[in-house]
Simulated assay, not measured.
Amino acid sequence: MAISFKKTYKFAVKSALYITLFSTGFLAGMMYFFDILRWDFIAIFVVSLFIFSFFVIQYRVERFIYRRVKKIYDDVSLLESSTFRNKSITTDMATLTREVQKFARDKKIEIETLKIREEYRREFLGNVSHELKTPLFTVQGYLLTLLDGAMNDKTLRKKYLQRAEKGVERLIYIVQDLDMITKLEVGDLNLNYTKFNIVEVVQNVFDLLEMKADKKNIMLMFDMKYIKPVMVYADREKIQQVITNLVVNSIKYGRENGTTEISIEDLVNNKIIVRIKDNGEGIEKKHIPRLFERFYRVDKSGARTEGGSGLGLSIVKHIIEGHDEKIYVESKFGEGSEFSFTLEKMK
């Protein structure tokens, strides 16, 4: 590690001056006492002593401070702080203080980040456990009931096997979504960009989810009649999945006899924005920053009466960001929510 003395001479100058004044006064007094006072000799003595004292003090103090400061750097190096360890050693106290304070701030931020990640990890593992446990216990319960004698009843046997199958389907759905989001997070998105009509994709999603919406008497609709196609450049399959997840979400948390409305608007720089708006229960403001986390629940009771893997919004966020686009959410608790995302528009 290179030595980089950023010298401050104030201490050495003062110390050398005190020594010179004392020594000169003592020498002049002795010469006066013995009646051999010579001012030319005293002048040479003063200059020589001051210069000698200054350099000796400066050198010794620098070496003294350097050895102790070097130990601080070495101790810090044990903490694997590469940004601090690679710096040259300075004996300037102001510079050293700034570097140590910066190191302490960086370490504090790092520790706080690790705490947040650890909390997120615990919460994520708890959520995964809950999501998998529910369908597993459901399947196990029906199978045990069948083994305990219900198998002999043809009606019960068929009903319980059908319910067990639904539990297995949910497990498969969760595992598939986990596999997908893992690939998305490592950048394995494999987007297949094509030019397509986004209006047609939205209509396809409406057709697919019409029966699901009818169960709650929710109307799926456009904000207006789109006569001309709106062409975009993206991965059609992935964008359909995004719209499907958002519409499913709006149905799941929408109110009876409500609406889910989709609008497509032009933005600047050859962009469009797709808005999915509902008049459902809405989301409290404190939950919005964490909505796109895996398995994050607004309802902390842990109930999932509507099913689903809990990964829908997280998948949506990764797909949109994989297209280098933005996703937004606005919501008023008790009034409804609006999710929107941008896409590149084609002529």
Rank of each mutant, 00 (worst) to 15 (best):
R157K: 12
G141N: 13
I251Y: 01
M180N: 09
D148F: 13
G254V: 00
F52Q: 08
A28R: 04
N269I: 05
D266E: 15
P229D: 07
M219L: 14
F103P: 00
M180K: 12
F137C: 08
I51Y: 10
K195F: 06
A12Y: 05
V298Y: 03
D74W: 07
R67F: 06
E321L: 13
G310R: 04
I288G: 02
K228M: 08
L313D: 02
D92R: 11
S15E: 09
I272R: 02
I3K: 15
V202C: 00
E265R: 14
Y253V: 00
I44A: 15
T83P: 02
G254L: 04
D235T: 03
K133T: 07
I273S: 07
Y66E: 10
I227S: 13
L17Y: 08
H287W: 04
L156V: 04
Y226G: 01
G126F: 06
L96S: 03
V13Q: 07
K10R: 13
G302V: 05
F339I: 00
L132E: 07
T134G: 10
I172M: 13
F222W: 07
G167E: 05
Y233L: 15
I172H: 10
E112T: 09
G307M: 05
I57T: 07
A234D: 02
L17M: 12
S331F: 05
F64W: 14
R163V: 03
V128K: 09
D74R: 13
E169K: 12
K70M: 09
Y226L: 03
E185N: 13
K300W: 04
D324N: 15
F196A: 02
S250A: 15
L125E: 10
F45W: 06
S331K: 02
D92K: 12
V232M: 06
I109E: 11
K252L: 01
F45L: 07
T138S: 14
R63E: 10
L114D: 09
R294W: 03
I109N: 10
I111P: 01
Y233D: 08
A16G: 03
K212L: 08
Y120C: 10
K70I: 03
E165M: 14
A94S: 13
Y193A: 09
V201T: 00
K14F: 12
E131V: 13
D106R: 14
E110N: 11
D74S: 14
V274D: 00
A164K: 01
A28M: 12
Q176S: 14
V168H: 06
Y120D: 12
P289V: 06
K6Q: 07
T259R: 08
V268N: 13
M221P: 00
K70P: 00
D40S: 14
Y328H: 10
E119N: 15
N127R: 15
T260V: 15
E80C: 10
I251R: 00
F5I: 09
Q140I: 11
R157T: 08
K87R: 12
N197S: 06
H318Q: 14
L267T: 02
